Simulated scan of single mutants.
Amino acid sequence: MSAEVAETPLVYIVAGEASGDLLAAGMMRALKKVTGGKIRFAGVGGDLMRAEGLESLFPISEMAVMGVFEILPHAPKLLRRIKQTVADILEKQPDILVTVDSKAFSLRVQKRLYKRREAGGPVGFPLVHMVAPTVWAWRPGRAKVISRFLDRLLVLFPFERPYFEEHGLKTTFVGHPASTQPVGDGAGLRARTQIAPRAPVLGVLPGSRPGEVRRLLPVFGETVRRLIARYPDLRILVPTVSGVAEQVRETVKDWPGTAIVIEGEAEKYNAFDAMNVALAASGTVTLELALAGVPTAVGYKVSPLSAPIGRRLVNLEAVVLANRILGRPVQPFFLQENCTPDALTVSIARLFDDTRARADCAAAARELRELLGTGAVSPSETAALTVADAAGISPAETA
């Protein structure tokens, strides 16, 4: 490594799933902009982060698990990857570590490094996390716990700051990148996929984790069969991500109506614009659909063993992000035994048939953009400037 390269700030970024990959890639792109390209990256990420110049330590698909009992079978590999990541960070000695989402993995890495620091180890760089644990939805005590071992937290929702500032953690609201998501070209996508301009289109989004897809697609598939019996001209679009794309294609190939599987960020937004209604797994994509003004029913299932624990710990009214932010049920939510083809079919048919649904969703989208944005500076750039400040990287000097 040349002396010039060695002196270029190194930002180590860890993202363990598709939503984190998207957020981290936007931040990386903004960091390159504010530093005039005088920045280096290392860490763990997916396709979008690789496109911004990251060589991932290992595939993030290995980390895409959630729930108590879903994690247990993966625990040995998870622990090995945590150990490997910590060792790589210590060897590279970055100017800052930024972990993004994927709390089961990321916060364990952060905690190990904090313990090394407390023991006098070589951890002089700031420990920063982006995307707060959903303490407002379940286990609020986690705010106190993570405040002990992080130096800074970047949150996406304005109501999150007080939960962590109460415990002395420096917390910055950076805004949600989805608030600036583009409007897609639905007409163009319909033309390319031979969907008639006036044909009704249902978007089906079964999640980004293999377990989600495995549990939800059978229920979603039966719902599609019932809806096509009611709406014979119905067409199906299935936006997905690379980590589960083959699994999704294999499952939907026998659905009626020839489901069209779509990959890529640009095509996802085109699909949003082409949809009349969506059926989606609970997660970040439901907020993206709300911001796109798509009437959406949300379904979710966890393993039967995790469900009783979740019911005791989770505030179910806060699970669907748009509903939590706006304080009203913008998107109907069906969990576990309530996530059935019968219930989903009735809900989606109501969204198709209610002429007010799209107008109501358009109004909600405008409210959400105002609440989640940060004005003239984009959320990704706000995050990049916050990271640069925490690392002592001066954009004015390096740009």
Rank of each mutant, 00 (worst) to 15 (best):
residue 26 G to I: 03
residue 51 A to Y: 02
residue 241 V to C: 08
residue 221 G to S: 11
residue 230 R to I: 13
residue 232 P to V: 09
residue 205 L to C: 10
residue 309 I to D: 03
residue 229 A to N: 14
residue 135 V to Q: 09
residue 314 V to G: 06
residue 132 A to K: 04
residue 298 V to R: 01
residue 291 L to Y: 07
residue 102 S to T: 10
residue 264 G to P: 02
residue 341 P to H: 13
residue 383 A to S: 15
residue 210 P to L: 11
residue 8 T to I: 08
residue 380 S to G: 09
residue 321 L to Q: 05
residue 68 V to E: 04
residue 370 E to V: 15
residue 134 T to G: 10
residue 110 Q to F: 07
residue 228 I to V: 15
residue 181 Q to K: 06
residue 300 Y to A: 03
residue 386 T to F: 02
residue 19 S to F: 02
residue 348 I to M: 05
residue 396 A to F: 09
residue 186 G to H: 09
residue 258 T to A: 12
residue 323 N to L: 00
residue 146 I to W: 07
residue 355 T to Q: 10
residue 170 K to E: 15
residue 168 G to T: 11
residue 78 L to G: 08
residue 237 L to E: 13
residue 396 A to P: 00
residue 364 A to Y: 10
residue 221 G to F: 03
residue 168 G to Q: 05
residue 388 A to K: 14
residue 304 P to H: 09
residue 180 T to W: 08
residue 307 A to G: 11
residue 125 F to W: 08
residue 5 V to L: 08
residue 77 K to N: 14
residue 153 L to N: 01
residue 137 A to V: 03
residue 59 P to W: 00
residue 331 Q to W: 08
residue 16 G to P: 06
residue 204 V to W: 03
residue 42 A to L: 05
residue 79 L to M: 15
residue 116 R to W: 04
residue 256 P to M: 01
residue 318 A to D: 13
residue 390 A to M: 02
residue 392 G to C: 10
residue 43 G to W: 12
residue 75 A to E: 02
residue 351 L to C: 08
residue 17 E to H: 01
residue 138 W to C: 01
residue 60 I to H: 01
residue 36 G to I: 06
